[in-house]
Nucleic acid binder design. Sequence first.
DNA 1: GACCTAACCTAACAAGCGTTAGTTTTAGAG
DNA 2: CTCTAAAACTAACGCTTGTTAGGTTAGGTC
Lengths: 193, 193
Amino acid sequence: MMDTTPRKEQIFQTAGAMFSRQGYHATTMRDIARELNMQGGSLYAHIDSKEDVLWEIVERAAAQFLESVRPLAGLPLPASARLRRMLAAHVDVVTRNLDNATVFFHEWRFLGPARRAHIAAQRDEYEALFRRVIQDGVAAGEFPGADARMGALLVLSAGNWLYQWFRPDGALSAAAVAAQMADVIIAGLRCVE
Amino acid sequence: MMDTTPRKEQIFQTAGAMFSRQGYHATTMRDIARELNMQGGSLYAHIDSKEDVLWEIVERAAAQFLESVRPLAGLPLPASARLRRMLAAHVDVVTRNLDNATVFFHEWRFLGPARRAHIAAQRDEYEALFRRVIQDGVAAGEFPGADARMGALLVLSAGNWLYQWFRPDGALSAAAVAAQMADVIIAGLRCVE
DNA sequence: GACCTAACCTAACAAGCGTTAGTTTTAGAG
DNA sequence: CTCTAAAACTAACGCTTGTTAGGTTAGGTC
């Protein structure tokens, strides 16, 4: 049973799993290598530095969030329907990439200044997508008494904290989680005054 | 201007600030010492190990959460009022101890197995407090269509993610944040079907 | 068989880690 | 001035860190 995945990808995958469980700084290059049955130094035939590995993981995760949610933000639907689909997409990205999502949320601050700034900018853009949809709902009378800033914060808090408790083998599927979350939050945005 | 705080407390305080900004593993004993104008080895006149410092910070934070919220959970009030006050207390603990709360949420997993288990148990008890109050609200007809598990998860997601974005010098006070959060979430629990 | 390339290993580097032992400094009490 | 005890310093310990240089191996191409 030969694994045909390129070695470089295997490194990213293994590093993602180990960074998520032990954290970036507590994971050694030799730890990663051992998991792949090789020597620590051999990793450097495929990658340039430890931080580059972290960057690859974090940047891919950030891109996945944006690419999944951005197309939904402008759909010709009521704000509540758009918000529901955006949250579902977010939950989907988190639950399907639990390890990398965990690294994204936990370890991005260990990137160098330039890369950290790049991620921060993407995160701000992402937040703005949610804020804008809720603002649309306020303007359209769907969420008459809601505050867009707090609404977006609430949606993203729920969506982001998810990596702390979601287990793929648990009772709730990702879709069920997303639906229940959306039910309560959207009801809240509608009914609050 | 002599600081009369015992050296041991100064160490916990400085370590809390540095652990929260750089993480536990990226912070050196010599880093902490430098901040206090001493040598790395001198710290060991006051503490026994680096992990003990982390433990002190995390355990104190956990105790603060429980001690602040537990007395409110059994108050003779409607569930929605109790939940509002519990969330306010939680937000208060986070915002008044931003550094230590950050360490609590981020770094507790680097404790040894026994201590980690102790914190996990306290966290479970804490979650149950919120779940039970919402369950009370469901039973009393206040939250007729709500799911207690998801409701508690939502409250705690909002309350816990707070440390990621709250800034004491920002536009929103802690009380205002807590009130807005409670407004939306309680409206959601009431109106969801 | 000669050649090439990618993948890997071995061995080491300079630096930094948490921690300790022994010594010196400081400050107050008798 | 002396004694004491706490607090800090110096210097090192054994180990680990990310990373590198140079040599080895395996498989495919002319």
